[in-house]
């Protein structure tokens, strides 16, 4: 048996040598990916935080909560969307507004509900802009173009059907109630200048 300095590893009873390489599996056990968006404070826009791998949306929510909102002093809400459910526009650069490339006019058909996210700077996060009612994805882009006037160029747009979003309920805001108590996760909790000073004085 492999002997480790880590008592946890010793409890795994690892063999000194594996007899064969790890069995390869036909299909890799890959889950779907979900995009997570976080709202730090009520009234602030949701921002894209990152992805999680999960087999379904409620597990994606469980995972995103700890991966993306376990630290910082505050968080108000979280939502997850299956990556597949996001319609992604073209991406532009160098001051070009991506909306300029959408031609046609909004159908005025408000039969479906969509949420719009903008990328305002390459390298930054997509931010939530608002809701539009439209016929389909393309139409939602046109509706958004009309509804949300822009002062700065938008480089990329994500469009999601509202029904495809799993969002924390307002009463779930208490999930983040004790964040500010978890100071041990923050750099600010580790001050020791006094100790160094005392030590130096003692040495001198």
């Amino acid at each position: 048996m492999l002997k480790s300095l880590d008592p946890r590893v010793n409890r795994l009873n690892l063999p000194e040598q594996f007899e064969a390489p790890m069995a390869s599996i036909e299909a890799l056990d890959q889950f779907e990916t979900y995009q997570a968006f976080v709202q730090l404070k009520e009234g602030k826009p949701f921002e894209h935080a990152g992805i999680v791998h999960a087999p379904n949306e409620e597990m994606a929510f469980l995972f995103a909560k700890e991966q993306y909102t376990r630290r910082g002093m505050i968080c108000n809400a979280l939502c997850v969307v299956k990556t597949e459910s996001i319609m992604v526009s073209e991406i532009t650069d160098n001051g070009q507004d991506v909306y300029d490339s959408f031609s046609g006019s909004f159908s005025e058909d408000d039969s479906a509900s969509f949420e719009i996210f903008h990328l305002l700077k390459r390298g930054k996060q997509h931010k939530y802009i608002g809701n539009v009612k439209a016929k389909d994805f393309e139409d939602a882009l046109l509706a958004s173009k009309q509804l949300y006037p822009r002062t700065k160029p938008v480089y990329n747009v994500w469009v999601v059907r509202s029904e495809d979003i799993l969002m924390s309920e307002p009463e779930d805001a208490d999930l983040w109630n004790t964040l500010k108590e978890k100071q041990y996760r923050e750099a600010i909790a580790y001050k020791a200048a006094d100790k160094i000073k005392a030590f130096k004085e003692e040495q001198a």
């Binding site: 999680v52 791998h53 999960a54 995972f63 909560k65 991966q67 376990r70």
Partner: peptide, 10 residues
């Protein structure tokens, strides 16, 4: 899986 590792630790 990595995500669960994180959740369980929290």
């Amino acid at each position: 899986l990595l995500e669960e590792d994180i959740a369980f630790s929290s």
